[in-house]
Computed example of a mutant assay.
Amino acid sequence: MKQKIYLSNDYFSDLMIRMAHHSTAIEGNTLTQGETKSILIDNYIPRAMNMRELHEVLNYKAYVKQMIEDLKQDVPIDVEYIKSVHAVLCNNAIEGIAGRFKTIPNLVIGADFTPTPPYLVPSELENWRLNLQYQLEHAENNDEIIESILRQHIQFEHIHPFSDGNGRVGRALIVYSCLRAHIVPIVIPVQDKGRYINYLNTEDITGFVLYAKELQQTELMRIQALANDTERDLYIWLPADAAKVEIN
């Protein structure tokens, strides 16, 4: 037995702040979560700051708004969709390349693999899409869905289709894939950056899945605490015996 829980606007505001802060901070953005909240929710710039860092977090307001609409329309992930996510998340943050695949080969520092060469990126991403679709269609439970999404995340970072911004796009696709599959989203916190990068480096899918399930438990508490049954457009499925937090 499963139960349906609906996702509130307040939850998506909370999700937006945390996606913006943690994903950009993993890449080196120095804004705090409090400053990110001031920018995205209060429309207030709390201090003088680097314009690139400002735009990096501002872009998540546009991204999450579009993500919600795409989820309502059940928009599938394809090559053009991936480019559109990059275009939104890198707008005014990465000069001249937002929404464009790399045109010269790139490397990941210290990696023991070579990213896909530019001329093969479109075909490799199409294979990536088909593999993800197949795995999700044949997944029989929550764990298999998570494993499929995370396995493809590792593969996405190996393809490294853009000259910059690959990590934030890949992590945004994790969240979108989870919500499209109606499971609790996975938001990787910056304080766990080393652990996360190690899973990518070692391709430890078993450890990555166990870690993701820990993150889902924390995320579920936020979803339940911010629940609002009057907003019924988007939902996730939970086991009938899932823990419920007390809301005062």
Rank of each mutant, 00 (worst) to 15 (best):
Q3S: 07
I5G: 00
Y6A: 02
L7Q: 01
S8L: 06
N9P: 04
D10R: 09
L15A: 05
I17R: 07
M19T: 01
M19V: 01
H21N: 14
H21C: 07
S23D: 10
A25R: 08
A25T: 10
A25M: 04
A25W: 06
G28E: 13
T30Q: 13
T30M: 12
L31N: 04
T32Q: 09
T32R: 05
G34V: 12
E35G: 03
K37V: 00
L40E: 12
Y44S: 02
M49A: 08
R52D: 11
E53G: 05
H55E: 15
L58W: 06
N59F: 11
Y60M: 06
A62N: 15
A62M: 05
V64L: 06
V64F: 09
K65C: 04
K65W: 07
M67W: 10
L71D: 11
K72I: 14
Q73A: 15
Q73I: 02
D74E: 15
D74F: 05
P76V: 09
P76T: 05
D78S: 03
D78M: 03
S84H: 14
V85R: 01
H86G: 09
H86D: 11
A87Y: 10
C90Q: 12
N92M: 14
A93M: 10
E95M: 10
G99H: 04
T103L: 11
N106V: 13
A111D: 10
D112F: 12
F113W: 11
F113C: 05
T114A: 10
P115Y: 02
Y119W: 11
V121F: 01
R129T: 12
R129Y: 01
N131S: 13
L132K: 06
L132E: 05
Y134L: 12
L136C: 09
L136A: 09
N142F: 09
D143G: 02
D143M: 08
E144L: 10
E144Y: 00
I145G: 09
S148G: 15
I149E: 03
L150Q: 09
I154A: 03
H160T: 07
N166E: 08
G167Q: 08
G170N: 07
G170R: 08
A172L: 01
V175M: 05
Y176R: 04
S177N: 05
V187F: 04
I188N: 05
V190H: 06
Q191D: 13
D192G: 04
G194D: 15
R195L: 15
Y196P: 06
N198A: 11
N201C: 04
D204M: 03
I205N: 02
F208K: 01
A212S: 11
Q216T: 05
L220Q: 07
A227S: 14
E231C: 04
D233E: 15
D233N: 11
D241P: 00
A242Q: 06
K244L: 13
K244E: 15
V245G: 10
E246Y: 12
N248F: 07
